[in-house]
Amino acid sequence: MSRTIAPPRQGAPATRIMGLGSYQPDRVVTNDELSQIMDTSDQWIRDRVGIIERRFAAPDETVVDMGVEAGSKALADAGLTASDVDTVIVATCTMPAPIPNAAAQTADRIGIKAVGAFDVNAACAGFCYALGMASDLVRGGTANRVLVVGAEKLTDVVDPVDRSTAIIFADGAGAAVVGPADTPGIGPVAWGSAGDLVDTIYMREHKYIYQEGQSVFRWATTQIAPVALDALALAGLEPSDVDVLVPHQANLRIVEAIAKRLRAKGAREDMVVADDIVYSGNTSSASIPMALDHMRAKGQVRSGDLALLVGFGAGLSYAGQVVLVP
């Protein structure tokens, strides 16, 4: 007797982002405050990384706490309730330990019971990786609606008096709900890695983030615009189609360099470029959904705008895709 596995479940013809949400801790940390505990200044920080202020989580505030806040807001924005979601993915690289993961408890605390839940660690590229996976899960029929969260507490892994990192990294969360659509609202993901450059960003003595500033800057300012162009090509679009560019908010100078390269390839001068880092710092996997949510709240982007997302970071890893703003 032959045993056969039933054919795959029928997936959705396309996917879209249904809602966005973000969360930042209450505590605002200014450059002047940091200048009191290390050798730096407001002007030095603005010149090097473009940050004016950032948010630090409270000592007892966790990655999951922040993810729950952002995820709940994204659900509400999508007009959905917890029972509408069947999969939760949390992109994070700052859980205090590898076990347990963030996704199962994040789901449970939002009230999403017994769903598929797992974490993705692609560092600052994590959100775009998770978004790509969520979209394919829905297209493949494994999931119907996926909550994708990027949540980070980088202050746990930063030497508080190291001026090369402590001025950059911050805490927060961003989230998006991915669901089925008749026409594509999320383009194919362009992703990849450069493991040969692993030594440029790592945890020194398993405690604090270290990065080779010049090497990472060179890589990000030269190798990431081509990834963004690949994402556009996979979606059958041209640089001139992009309304909003949302690179990972690593450093304002990297963001501007990527925008400049895309404009040299035909992106419009009036393309809106995310600069959320100025008041949020670098929040790793949270930065892209947080920036998009903030920009929409401020009216800088509107529902239906075509946004080009591109994340990049430790690994080194990178990923990008085109989405329609919900």
Binding site: D47, R48, E212, G213, Q214, S215, F217, R218, T221, T222, N251, R253, A257
Partner: peptide, 25 residues
């Protein structure tokens, strides 16, 4: 600053057809 030096190196590489790695820079 050090980041502008990287941008100068990248542009010089394109313009003059040289490789200027960070340790040489």
């Amino acid at each position: 600053d050090s980041l502008s030096m990287v941008e100068i190196a990248v542009q010089a590489e394109d313009k003059f057809g040289v490789k200027i790695p960070d340790d040489e820079l």
